[in-house]
C-alpha cells in the first residue's frame, strides 16, 4: 500500500505495509527530507490523531491512500502547526457557478 504524507505544497507518496511501524515511515521520510526522526511528527488526517512511533500503521487505522500530515520541530523545540496547502480547486469554483450545467 501507500500513504500520502503532506506538508505545505508537497506530497510524498510513501510505499509501505500495514504492519510497518510509524518509526519506519519516519526513517523513510528522513531519507527524502533530511530531518531526523525525532524532529518529525505524523498526524493522521482528517482525525488529527498524532501517530505513535512504536505502533504499526494498521494499529492506528492508517490505511491505503491515507493522508498523513508531516510537521517538523521548530527552533523553540515545539512542533509547528499542521499546514497543508490545498490547491484552489476547480471543483469549488464550479460550485460557485451555481450548477450552470
Amino acid at each position: 500500500m501507500y500513504i500520502r504524507v503532506k506538508r505545505m505544497k508537497t506530497t510524498y507518496f510513501i510505499q509501505c505495509d500495514p504492519t510497518e511501524k510509524v518509526l519506519e515511515i519516519k526513517q523513510k521520510l528522513n531519507v527524502l527530507i533530511d530531518q531526523p526522526v525525532n524532529d518529525q511528527r505524523l498526524t493522521h488526517m482528517p482525525s488529527g490523531e498524532v501517530l505513535e512511533d512504536s505502533k504499526s500503521l494498521a494499529d492506528q487505522k492508517v490505511e491505503n491512500d491515507a493522508v498523513v500530515a508531516l510537521t517538523l520541530r521548530k527552533d523553540d523545540n515545539k512542533f509547528e502547526e499542521v499546514n497543508i496547502v490545498r490547491p484552489d480547486d476547480f471543483c469549488q469554483s464550479r460550485d460557485a457557478e451555481g450548477g450552470s450545467w
Binding site: 505544497k9 508537497t10 510505499q15 527524502l32 496547502v85
Partner: peptide, 24 residues
C-alpha cells in the same frame, strides 16, 4: 519492506507549483 533511496524517487510539479514526490 523495501529500503528507501532518494535516487529512486522523482518529483512531479503541477501547474500551481505543488510537488508530488513518488517512487520512480
Amino acid at each position: 519492506m523495501t529500503e528507501m533511496r532518494k535516487e529512486d524517487t522523482v518529483k512531479l510539479i503541477s501547474a500551481e507549483g505543488f510537488e508530488f514526490v513518488i517512487n520512480k
